[in-house]
Amino acid sequence: MKKIYLILIMSIITFSCSDESVNLEPLSIANSKRSINSVSNSGDYNVAVTVSSDGTEWTYTITRAVTKAKSLSHFIIDLNNCGQDSATFADIISATVNGNPANMSPSEGSGTGCDTQEITTNFIKFDVQEATSWVIILKYNRGYEISTTATSWLKAGTSCHQAVIYAPGCPKGDVFEELSTL
């Protein structure tokens, strides 16, 4: 019996100490709210996510899937993925967009038309500049598990596209704390 626990403990320690990040496949673009005059569509963007093994660093790489897709003006991530233990704007210790300090807010502001409050009031909005791709790196003050059902919004022109993405879920537990319960 002790051998099984030792193998389990070594496996957990090896996994938790790994420096490797996890590359996650993009999830589907779900809904779209747009003006009749907009040429942007919900499938025009891909969002790939990479998460550090400790869950503290999240990298969102957004690319245009269609060459003629409009440039993004905002990217919004729903952080409410673990009830009271969800990540919040205050848990972010740094953020960049394409290598520059991020212009971000816990408020939708005015004029996005994304209606995030229909789903959540716990979100982060990034203002992004004209580009063909965007790399957003978020660093949190603690690690988070991966939620596979988080909502995001991509604002382009008069369109606001809602997508299901990977985002911070529940906080990661302390390995030694978890081992003490065995």
Rank of each mutant, 00 (worst) to 15 (best):
D78I: 12
L79G: 07
N80C: 04
N81P: 14
Q84R: 05
Q84H: 02
S86D: 02
T88S: 15
T88H: 03
A90Y: 00
A90R: 00
A90H: 00
D91S: 06
I92E: 01
I93M: 08
I93F: 02
I93A: 04
A95M: 04
A95W: 04
A95Y: 05
T96G: 04
V97K: 08
N98V: 03
N98M: 02
G99Y: 09
N100K: 12
N103M: 06
M104I: 14
M104A: 09
S107P: 00
G109V: 06
G111F: 12
G111R: 11
G111H: 12
C114G: 11
Q117Y: 12
Q117D: 15
I119K: 15
T120I: 09
N122F: 00
F123A: 06
F123K: 02
I124V: 15
D127N: 13
D127R: 07
V128I: 06
E130C: 00
T132R: 15
S133K: 10
W134L: 03
I136Y: 00
I137N: 00
K139Y: 10
N141I: 04
R142Y: 00
G143V: 08
Y144C: 07
E145K: 09
E145N: 11
I146K: 03
T148L: 06
T149E: 14
A150E: 04
A150W: 10
K155N: 07
K155W: 01
T158W: 11
S159Y: 05
H161A: 12
H161S: 13
Q162T: 08
A163M: 08
A163V: 03
A167H: 01
P168D: 03
G169C: 12
P171A: 02
G173W: 03
D174E: 14
D174Y: 11
V175E: 05
F176K: 09
F176P: 03
F176L: 14
F176N: 09
E177Q: 14
